[in-house]
Structure formats: structure tokens, C-alpha cells
């Protein structure tokens, strides 16, 4: 599928000021949600002047391995401490909650879905985004990935070696159909045939690298000017290659 990459961004949650995280406006949002809001806001603003009704045009695919695991932990912790189950923490604990928050915050009315695919959630998010354009469902799509494992739960995974959990990151990449990018005067960072290739062994113990950081790695590869394919290998048992 021939695609134009028209926007990339990433943000570390710890780079966000505490007063923003704790602000009244964000009182119901998790740190991952605030981070997602921050970079999606910037992305939409950069497109708004060029594309009419970007809120309806932009498709979104969210990818995550663990969703908001910290919220699941908080849900049960709060019950133990106070004897109540929090509706806000519950709604935030769903894997789909970041997409839900982003869509409500920016009044998005296009296509949207959340996917999860273990260690390959980042790659699958990119592939599913490209597939939406290939299927003719949209002309422009945002892939957004996030993951965060609470430090106190690190030891609960037998093969944990994810990215530093104290530095959870949200990353996004926006792709457009090349003709659409040209027609709307979008600045193109890179253009070419995009595809993802896998060699997956169906080992259910594949928890070696449990985050969706492939999207972040993809952005870094583009930014550094390194050549594709970008390849990721996990213990020699499984690999992915992103061609672009």
C-alpha cells in the first residue's frame, strides 16, 4: 500500500507538568490519557487549517498491549481501602478508554477502533491503520500507541523486559493516501510502499517484550533517516519487519 506519512509525535508521560496532570480539567483522565490528548491536540491543530472537517475525516486506530493496567489495579485497591468501586476508574480501565477519551475530547466522528496483540501491538496498530486506507474506508488515519505497567506489578510478569515503566510513552503516526496528501497540501515526511511482515511462533508465553513501543521505534527510524526495513526480533523466536 502506497502511503504518505504526514505527522509523527511522541511524548513521555513524565515530561508533563504535574499541575497539568492534576488539573481540574484532567481530574477524570489518567496520565496516559493526558499524554494522548496533548499530542493528538497538536496533530489535529496541524491538520485543521488544511482539511475541512478533519474531525470526521480522521480515522483512529489505537494499539496497546496492557491498556490501562494501572487503572485495573486502582479499581481493586480502592475497593480494598474504601469499600467502593469507582465508576470513573472502571471506565478508564478498559483498553478502549484512551480512544474513547480522545474521541470525546476532539469530537471525532470518523472511524475508530482499538486493537491489542501482545508484543506485536505496535506493528499490528500500524498494519491495521494502513489496512483501513487500503480498504477505502478513509483517506487519513492516525495510529496511536500507549502502554504503562505500574512499577509494583513488574515482578508479576515472568519475562518482563519492557520499556522503562517509569517512562511510559504515547506515540502517534498519521498516514494519508498520497493523492489526498497532495490535494490538501499536507507536508509529507516520507512516502512509499508500507507493509509489515511477521514471523510469529504461536507461543502463548510470548511476554518477553510487553509493550507497544514498535510505533515509537518506527518514528525514531523515520526521524533518524535510517533505512527500512525496521526489524524487531524477540529472543530469536519471533520477528517483525516494517517496510516503508
Amino acid at each position: 500500500m502506497n502511503l504518505s506519512l504526514v505527522h509523527t509525535a511522541s511524548i513521555e508521560v513524565e515530561s508533563i507538568d504535574q499541575h497539568i496532570l492534576n488539573s481540574r480539567e484532567n481530574r477524570r483522565a489518567t496520565p496516559l490519557m493526558v499524554a494522548a490528548k496533548t499530542i493528538v491536540s497538536s496533530a489535529i491543530n496541524s491538520l485543521k487549517d488544511k482539511i475541512d472537517h478533519i474531525e470526521d475525516e480522521l480515522a483512529v486506530v489505537a494499539g496497546t498491549t496492557h491498556g490501562e493496567l494501572s487503572q485495573t489495579l486502582s479499581f481493586f485497591k480502592k475497593f480494598k481501602e474504601k469499600g467502593i468501586y469507582s465508576p470513573t476508574i472502571f471506565q478508564n480501565s478498559l483498553h478502549n478508554s484512551v480512544l474513547g477519551l480522545v474521541s470525546t475530547e476532539f469530537n471525532l466522528g470518523g472511524i475508530g477502533m482499538t486493537i491489542s496483540h501482545g508484543i506485536l501491538s505496535g506493528e499490528k496498530c500500524l498494519e491495521a491503520s494502513a489496512d483501513l486506507i487500503a480498504a477505502g474506508r478513509c483517506n487519513i488515519v492516525m495510529a496511536i500507541c500507549f502502554d504503562c505497567i505500574p512499577r509494583e506489578l513488574e515482578s508479576c510478569f515472568s519475562n518482563f523486559s519492557g520499556s522503562d515503566p517509569s517512562r511510559p510513552t504515547v506515540s502517534l503516526a498519521i498516514f494519508a493516501l498520497p493523492e489526498f496528501a497532495t490535494q490538501n497540501g499536507l507536508e509529507v515526511q516520507k512516502m512509499g510502499v508500507f507493509s509489515v511482515e511477521y514471523n510469529e511462533e504461536n507461543k502463548i508465553s510470548m511476554t518477553t517484550r510487553i509493550d507497544s513501543s514498535a510505533l515509537l521505534d518506527f518514528i525514531k527510524t523515520v526521524d533518524s533517516g535510517n533505512s527500512f526495513p525496521y526489524e524487531r526480533e524477540i529472543e530469536g523466536r519471533c520477528y517483525s519487519r516494517i517496510y516503508f
Partner: peptide
């Protein structure tokens, strides 16, 4: 905090089916 969360990633359900 010694839970076993190896099956926590949603993808584990898909991997098991596969």
C-alpha cells in the same frame, strides 16, 4: 503484590487460540 499476570495482555487469548 506477587500476582501472576502472564496472561494479562489481551493478546494472550488470541495467541492461545492460534
Amino acid at each position: 503484590m506477587k500476582a501472576n499476570l502472564d496472561d494479562e495482555p489481551l493478546g494472550m487469548y488470541l495467541f492461545a487460540l492460534r
